[in-house]
Measured scan of single mutants.
Amino acid sequence: KLLSSIEQACDICRLKKLKCSKEKPKCAKCLKNNWECRYSPKTKRSPLTRAHLTEVESRLERLE
Rank of each mutant, 00 (worst) to 15 (best):
Leu3Asn: 13
Val56Met: 07
Glu36Asn: 13
Pro41Gly: 06
Leu31Asp: 14
Cys20Thr: 05
Leu18Asp: 01
Arg38Thr: 15
Arg38Ile: 14
Cys10Tyr: 04
Leu18Ala: 14
Leu15Glu: 11
Pro41Asn: 05
Val56Lys: 04
Ser4Ala: 13
Ser46Leu: 00
Asp11Val: 10
Ser21Tyr: 00
Thr49Ala: 02
Arg59Phe: 03
Lys1Ser: 15
Arg50Gln: 07
Leu3Glu: 15
Leu53Asn: 02
Lys17Leu: 04
Leu63Met: 13
Lys1Pro: 15
Glu57Ser: 07
Gln8Pro: 08
Asn33Phe: 09
Glu64Cys: 09
Asp11Gln: 10
Ser46Phe: 03
Ile12Val: 13
Leu63Asn: 00
Pro41Phe: 02
Arg38His: 13
Arg50Lys: 01
Ser46Ala: 04
Ala51His: 10
Leu48Pro: 05
Lys1Ile: 05
Cys13Ser: 03
Thr43Val: 13
Thr49Glu: 02
Thr49His: 08
Thr43Arg: 08
Cys27Gln: 02
Glu7Asp: 11
Ser4Tyr: 12
Leu48Lys: 08
Ser46Val: 01
Pro41Asp: 09
Lys22Arg: 10
Cys30Trp: 08
Arg14Ile: 03
Gln8Val: 06
Glu36Leu: 10
Glu36Gly: 11
Thr54Trp: 08
Lys17Glu: 01
Glu7Val: 10
Lys22Phe: 05
Leu31Ile: 12
Lys24Ser: 15
Ala28Pro: 02
Glu23Arg: 09
Leu60Pro: 04
Lys29Val: 02
Thr54Cys: 08
Leu53Asp: 02
Glu23Gln: 15
Trp35Cys: 06
Arg50Asn: 00
Leu60His: 05
Lys22Asp: 03
Cys13Ile: 06
Glu55Trp: 14
Glu57Ala: 03
His52Trp: 10
Arg14Trp: 01
Leu60Trp: 01
Cys13Tyr: 08
Lys19Thr: 07
Arg45Ala: 04
Leu2Glu: 15
Cys30Glu: 05
Lys29Ser: 05
Glu23Asn: 14
Thr54Ile: 06
Arg59Ile: 01
Cys10Phe: 03
Lys22Tyr: 06
Ala51Asp: 06
Ala9Pro: 05
Leu3His: 12
Cys13His: 03
Glu36Lys: 10
Trp35Ile: 14
Lys26Pro: 04
Ser58Tyr: 13
Gln8Tyr: 13
Ser5His: 13
Leu31Lys: 14
Thr54Pro: 08
Leu63Arg: 09
Glu55Ser: 12
Glu64Val: 10
Lys19Ala: 05
Lys1Cys: 14
Pro41Met: 08
Glu23Ser: 13
Arg62Cys: 09
Lys44Trp: 06
Thr49Met: 07
Leu60Cys: 14
Lys22Cys: 03
Pro41Cys: 05
Lys24Trp: 15
Ser58Glu: 15
Arg62Pro: 09
Ala9Leu: 00
Lys22Trp: 01
Lys26Thr: 11
Val56Ser: 00
Glu61Cys: 13
Lys42His: 09
Ser21Asn: 05
Lys44Leu: 15
Leu2Val: 15
Ser46Lys: 00
Lys17Gly: 01
Arg38Pro: 06
Arg62Glu: 04
Lys32Gly: 10
Ser58Asp: 12
Ile6Asp: 07
Glu57Ile: 02
Glu36Gln: 10
Ser58Pro: 03
Pro47Asn: 01
Leu31Asn: 14
Lys17Met: 01
Ser4Val: 12
Arg59Gln: 11
Arg50His: 02
Leu53Ile: 05
Leu18Lys: 00
Arg50Phe: 02
Asn33Trp: 01
Asn34Gly: 13
Trp35Gly: 12
Trp35Ser: 13
Glu57Pro: 07
Ala9Tyr: 00
Lys1Met: 15
Lys29Leu: 07
Leu60Asp: 00
Asp11Phe: 02
Pro41Gln: 05
Trp35Met: 12
Ala28Ser: 06
Ser5Phe: 09
Val56His: 08
Cys30Lys: 03
Ser5Gln: 11
Glu7Cys: 12
Asn33Gln: 13
Lys19Val: 06
Ile12Leu: 12
Thr49Asn: 01
Ala51Val: 14
Ala51Met: 10
Arg59Asn: 05
Cys30Pro: 01
Asn34Asp: 12
Glu61Asp: 13
Glu55Gln: 12
Lys32Asn: 11
Lys44Arg: 12
Cys30His: 04
Pro47Trp: 08
Gln8Asn: 09
Arg59Met: 07
Glu57Tyr: 06
Lys16Leu: 02
Lys17Ala: 05
Ile6Leu: 10
Thr49Ser: 02
Cys37Asp: 09
Lys19His: 07
Leu48Glu: 02
Ser5Lys: 09
Gln8Glu: 02
Cys10Asn: 07
Ala51Lys: 12
Ala9Asn: 01
Glu23Asp: 13
Ser4Glu: 13
Gln8Ser: 12
Asn34Pro: 02
Cys30Ala: 05
Arg38Leu: 15
Trp35Pro: 07
Thr43Gly: 09
Trp35Asp: 09
Arg45Tyr: 01
Leu18Glu: 00
Ser4His: 12
Pro47Gln: 01
Thr49Val: 07
Lys17His: 09
Lys1Gly: 15
Leu3Gln: 09
Lys22Ser: 04
Glu7Lys: 08
Arg50Tyr: 07
Cys13Gln: 00
Glu64Met: 15
Arg14Phe: 03
Leu63Phe: 12
Cys10Ile: 02
Ile12Gln: 11
Glu23Phe: 09
Arg45Gly: 02
Cys30Ile: 07
Asn33Met: 09
Leu60Ile: 08
Cys37Lys: 00
Trp35Phe: 13
Glu55Arg: 11
Lys17Arg: 07
Leu53Thr: 00
Ala9Phe: 01
Cys37Glu: 02
Glu7Ile: 10
Ile6Trp: 08
Ile12Met: 10
Arg38Lys: 12
